[in-house]
């Protein structure tokens, strides 16, 4: 929505990391449109269900098109949008539960196809919208409303997962520096192929991880987040795997690989496919 809509009945809690991600997404969408001299209408934001998915209604200014679908299915919907009209810049916004739990089955196919879609994942390590249950990225032992005695599943490592299934652009960041995050998202949009920007976006209400991420320098506590070293080569699988074997949350582009997208491959096939009119097709059934 371009202006505050008094009837819109969702609001993020004060301090929610998703505010920063929204700022970054807005800047990236505008930046992408300017860079490619395309109207904002060429951008499509496909949202999952969760606090994070509400992003699609909260983008301000010139409006992109949007889909606010069903829980976990933003990737297949985005796949349909992109293959339906490959000219559209198609961006998924989803939460950790939406993307990695209920929607986890769609990651592999999206990577195998290398669909030209960008996913911005807001990882808060919790189910925000349903009020604080454990999520795939909640820590082992985490006490949440659904794990009152502690979580007894090991958490998923999203970045390693993306790497292992062959996602061709993987970046990791947090919500606190929207300007930098915006650049990363815009770069992901420019990447030809499946790109994921995995953002630590703390939930101030159910899992406030700001201090854990950034640490408390005054008290000498180191945060989990660390800048990716200058000499990291994101085009190297080895470098990427090395980086991901380090504890903590890397900030920056982890991996990047150019290659054919599904659309490139499809166009290759179609160049070989014989062309037939509907009448010719129907005539192949004629009783001779």
């Amino acid at each position: 929505m371009s202006k505050r809509n008094p009837e819109y009945d969702f609001a993020w809690c004060p301090g929610c990391g998703d505010f920063g991600v929204r700022r970054a997404l807005q800047v990236a969408l505008e930046g992408y449109s300017v860079e490619h001299e395309e109207p904002q209408a060429n951008n499509v934001v496909v949202a999952g269900i969760g606090c994070s998915g509400n992003m699609v209604h909260l983008v301000e200014g010139d409006q992109p098109f949007g889909i606010h679908g069903i829980h976990g299915r933003s990737l297949p919907i985005a796949f349909g949008v992109k293959q339906g009209n490959p000219k559209l810049n198609t961006v998924v916004v989803a939460g950790d539960g939406d993307f990695l739990s209920i929607g986890g089955e769609h990651l592999g196919p999206a990577a195998n196809r290398n669909i030209d879609v960008t996913a911005v994942v807001m990882d808060n390590g919790v189910y925000g919208l349903t009020k604080g249950q454990s999520s795939p990225t909640s820590e082992f032992g985490a006490v949440t409303t659904s794990t009152p005695l502690g979580k007894i599943e090991t958490p998923v490592s999203p970045l390693k997962l993306y790497m292992s299934i062959g996602v061709t652009y993987i970046a990791s960041y947090y919500s606190s520096k929207p300007r930098v995050l915006a650049k990363m998202i815009q770069e992901a949009m420019n990447h030809k192929g499946f790109s994921i920007v995995h953002v630590q976006s703390p939930c101030t209400t159910y899992n406030d991880t700001y201090d854990i991420l950034k640490g408390k320098p005054q008290e000498g506590i180191k945060g989990l987040a660390f800048e990716i070293p200058e000499d990291h080569d994101p085009t190297s699988v080895e470098d990427a795997n090395d980086l991901l074997s380090r504890p903590g949350v890397p900030l920056g582009v982890i991996f990047k690989k150019e290659g054919q997208t599904l659309q490139d491959r499809y166009e290759g096939l179609m160049a070989r496919a014989p062309k037939r009119t509907n009448d010719e097709l129907l005539d192949s059934y004629l009783l001779q």
Binding site: I67, I70, R73, P76, I77, V81, G84, P109
Partner: peptide, 15 residues
């Protein structure tokens, strides 16, 4: 599940 959601995306995009 992919099939129905893919055609939702495509139908939205004009197909």
């Amino acid at each position: 599940i992919e099939a129905i959601n893919a055609i939702i995306g495509a139908g939205f995009a004009g197909k």
